[in-house]
Amino acid sequence: MTLTGELDTGTEVPAGERVIDVRDLRMRYGTTDVLAGVSFTARRGEVLALLGPNGAGKTTTIEILEGFRMRSAGEVRVLGADPASAGEHWRARVGVVLQSWRDHGKWRVRELLKHLGTYYAAYSTPEISRPWPVDDLLDAVGLTAHAGQRVMRLSGGQRRRLDVAIGIVGRPELLFLDEPTTGFDPAARREFHDLVHRLTDVDDTTILLTTHDLDEAEKLADRIVILAGGRIIADGSADELSRQVAGQTEIRWTRDGQRFIHSAADATAFVRQLFLQYGEDIGDLEVRRDNLEDTYMKLVFDAEGGAR
């Protein structure tokens, strides 16, 4: 099955609404092609998840779009400009959440956010007032209680929240999140997801995120792009992808105290048949369609198998 061929005609976003527009992006180190012709778009307010195995080119792609890395070939437009040559005004409209380590350790949380915010003040517009007021921002990421603390005294989870706060202090129109919830506990992850929803719902922020957490991608992303071996092997909503793969649906039930499990391509027909045959005897019925993880595993397996 070739998904790649259909992609060019698949999800067409009108040119004017494209916040990200990547055409035939290529990246080559020496004789290795890390990206071998990647094309995708993102529309305003959309959350796009970039998935793929390690070494698939996710980070390279996101760093090219951030303007932190030069590309070998292809056309890239981000917020209407080429990130390789865009200026400071463009930079002010883009947010990048970086993985912190021990930078700014002596700074206090509020002090750092306030200072970094001042870089954006010159780029405030009537529509978007920049920067994000510090107290609101601290509240939004749940760091109000730690505002006076030195950055080096924060826990890992608190630091990641500070990373997010620094990424959005300039009220970006487009936000890049490279594996944002690595090291989060479940509660922090939930809070982070709420924050992402808030950014897209209230501020209409476009978000491009990479993650290995497929559950997270399914929850957050409007659209999912899967990279493998430097190519895009799938592009669509989680639902569309699972339909493309024509996965099996798992059906579980009990009859006469016994458990049964069956996989079927057409679950509806199977269940209808099941009731016709046994009627009232059927209990504890569960019907579970392939989730994103199943779809992802199949797609990546096919892509890597095809390449070998």
Binding site: R102, D103, G170
Partner: peptide, 10 residues
């Protein structure tokens, strides 16, 4: 990473 943070701001 201090420098990268600086690079990410206008």
């Amino acid at each position: 990473g201090t420098l990268l943070r600086a690079k990410a701001a206008p």
